[in-house]
């Protein structure tokens, strides 16, 4: 599944770039994130409990940041595994200044497997968009706090 879109965060690219790679900010913004532990430079392990209304899934996963070009772009690699399925995604986030704020454009591809791939295809697209939106909304709220 291809995923792309953009979201404007109310901070300059430098600060946005840092926040998008800040474990604490990530942990606070990722839907259902319960735990995010740095395991190496730019590598994290996480536990998530993703809840969308009745649907719920526990995932254990890894995040890796690569191809860093401060403050313009970086690559994000995510994988997660749980009883209801697994996902593996990779995408590039491109940051461009927009009137004192930053437009974050994301473009990537996610592979989904297991139960969620087998029975969820009608709603995967809408659900993925929803989770990404929630992430950026929380991130935006965080950006607005004084650092």
């Amino acid at each position: 599944m291809k995923i792309s879109g953009s979201y404007t965060l109310p901070a300059a690219p430098e600060r946005t770039y840092a926040l998008l790679q800040d474990p604490e900010a990530l942990a606070a913004s990722m839907p259902g994130c319960r735990e995010l532990v740095r395991t190496a430079e730019d590598e994290y392990e996480m536990k998530m409990n993703v809840v969308i209304s009745s649907i719920q899934g526990l995932f254990a996963g890894k995040i890796r940041v690569a191809d860093k070009e401060f403050p313009a772009r970086f690559r994000l690699l995510v994988e997660g595994d749980g009883k209801i399925g697994f996902l593996k995604g990779e995408g590039v986030l491109t940051l461009s200044p927009a009137d004192g704020a930053t437009e974050v454009h994301y473009d990537g591809e996610v592979q989904v497997g297991g139960m969620i791939a087998g029975v969820g295809q009608r709603l995967l697209d809408a659900t993925a968009k929803y989770l990404i939106k929630r992430f950026f909304e929380k991130m935006a709220a965080r950006v607005e706090q004084p650092s």
């Binding site: 592979q111 087998g118 009608r122």
Partner: peptide, 14 residues
């Protein structure tokens, strides 16, 4: 089946 061999029509819903 998707490119990774997941059967995406995996239920009578799809």
């Amino acid at each position: 089946y998707d490119d990774n061999g997941q059967l995406v029509t995996g239920e009578l819903m799809d």
